[in-house]
Design a protein around this nucleic acid. Structure first.
Lengths: 335, 335
DNA sequence: TGTGTCAATGTTAAGGTTTACATTGGCTAA
DNA sequence: TTAGCCAATGTAAACCTTAACATTGACACA
């Protein structure tokens, strides 16, 4: 291992001068600087990041907890996180939790052990174990999309899910639909409650019933979409419009509807959520709500880094704009 | 910051005993152990990972260079990497390079600065800058899917792209196709050459021409698939079967073909590569080659970690099995 | 009793870097 | 000439943990 001491000997200066040459060159005379840089090159020296980090007490690293790596929506968020982190001189540790609390605990504890300076949670759970909870009190943590379930309010970057769902509902009402269903993904989350409330509020205003039987789900997957449709088609009153709580579910739903010999949107309209890339290119292209995933990731990093730097929190909640994307998977209700 | 010294004072023992209690408890008497653990709890102490890492000289971290985070195939690989890394006590630093050499250099240099112990490259370039190249000589590095372009042969986990392409070609020949085209994604990569060679070898055996004009591409994206089809449909001799070098391209190709008023597979057969999740659920479901992405990621970590541990390299190249997945996007050639 | 052994614990150096403080020496201004 | 200043550099402590080596003391056995 070539270390700073070896370089200092090679250049005939002290280790402090080597350090200064690399970190604050203006404090070193030109002649010495050149001498040192030459020695650095000759020795093939690269400063040991671990050593400087232990000195500063900062790892300049953030850990991101993702429930599901293969979800393209999350990946767009992470793309934004990665980009912004890099710009700010941070690196990103990936924490694929698969929704497992044990894994969440493990990754979250990295912030307690100086392995990371802060964390971004993409799921809705409070990621620390009960044992760590009190230590986690004032740690930099930000959530994206979901709100972290805890007494203390951590900053959150989110969408107005209530309004977005209302927009989808109005869109479908405009097509004359009267029989609705929802395939909701993960129950027990903030998102679930808000979106459902948004839909309910619109239907109530129009005095359209929306029964429990019409609400199904379990996960944000294509399979859940297929299973949801199979369930819905077995009901006595078939819905003419289905809210899917993300685009993967919607893709599964469209697939299952077509497989059952029905048409989208002629027989059943399907709307999704997230606007993932592929949604525009399936048949029929998906009506959905666009979330600015990349920007949400970027913003999360900005908020997190300012927390890490100890700057006062401006807003504990930021709501980013959504956009209703009307495509061909939704259309007039059948007569 | 509560450190080990504070705990040692609280417990009335030396720092060494605290360290031993946590790292090798069998060396400490039961009574002391309990005393120390109580103090640890009372102080809310968590060992500083940076400090122990600088001591050991190991960060137990690997950095993964990904050209494109949103590609679900890469994400499956990374899922495998993440899982295996966690099992082996490593964490994963994410390096979203967007194909930019500057970013590759930056992430790769993390291995030189003790920020990471090894790296996994998902692209085909040698990720170190020219200045770092000689330092990078013997660093732990593994590539997945693509082979790293350098004199020194780094271990690679890959697929038999040649054989897989031959399988696809035979599949299409079996349907009576005679006019082929390919939308190839990134040119200049190993994958490109091998897959093309595989297709060419089969067509040559059957004395079927395969002209340069029929080969198009540029990126592994849906848009490239669309652009590719638009180009191919403008040619005097329209192909009846299109090889797409990944499923995203194939999804774009199917979309564009349908948009042009043609049918898949009745007018044109389309085959993809990778078998991403959504490929089974688009219309028509995609004929493709399944790559064991998750296992490739896992295996890459195993090889990398054994390199990090200084174990001798068993094989510098591991070829994992592919599987031809025949679905409805390919069918008999039109008359 | 004395010696040897061993488990338990303490002391301290080491890991590589940064930085507060100290030193050097050249220069200016009175 | 000399005090004073300042830029350049050096010295050594600090960051926190770990581990090699040292010490202690209890116990066994001759």
């Amino acid at each position: 291992m070539t270390n700073i001491k070896k370089v200092s000997e090679l250049a005939g200066v002290s280790t402090a001068t080597v350090s200064r040459t690399l970190k604050s060159p203006d404090q070193v005379s030109l002649a010495t600087r050149e001498k040192v840089l030459e020695a650095v090159k000759a020795a093939g020296y690269r400063p040991n990041w671990l050593a400087s980090s232990v000195k500063s007490g900062r790892s300049n690293t953030i850990v991101v907890l993702v429930p599901n790596l293969v979800n393209p929506f999350f990946m767009r968020i992470i793309g934004g996180i990665e980009q912004a982190a890099q710009e700010k001189g941070f690196s990103v540790l990936l924490g694929d939790t698969q929704g497992s609390p044990a894994r969440e605990h493990e990754y979250a504890s990295m912030v307690l052990t100086n392995r990371a300076d802060g964390l971004i949670q993409l799921d809705h759970s409070f990621p620390f174990s009960a044992a760590d909870a009190d230590l986690a009190e004032d740690l930099p943590m930000v959530s994206v999309c979901e709100r972290i379930a805890s007494e203390k309010k951590y900053p959150v970057i989110e969408l107005d899910n209530y309004a977005a769902s209302r927009a989808l509902a109005h869109h479908l009402l405009g097509y004359g639909h009267k029989h609705f269903a929802a395939i909701v993904g993960q129950v027990s989350s903030q998102i679930y409650r808000e979106r459902l409330a948004g839909i309910r509020s619109v239907l109530q205003e129009e005095q359209i019933p929306f029964e429990q039987a019409q609400i199904t789900g379990g996960a944000y997957t294509i399979e859940a979409g297929i299973a949801g449709v199979e369930h819905l088609l077995s009901l006595p009153q078939r819905p003419t419009a289905i809210f899917c709580f993300n685009d993967d579910i919607a893709i599964g739903a469209v697939h299952a509807i077509k497989k059952a010999g029905l048409r989208v949107p002629e027989d059943i309209s399907v709307v999704g959520f997230d606007n993932i890339k592929v949604s525009a290119f399936i048949d029929p292209p998906l009506t959905t709500v666009d979330q600015p995933a990349y920007d949400m990731g970027r913003r999360a990093v900005e908020v997190l880094v300012s927390q890490i730097r100890g700057e006062p929190l401006v807003r504990s909640k930021e709501v980013l704009p959504f956009q209703l994307i009307e495509r061909e998977s939704s259309g007039p209700a059948p007569l």
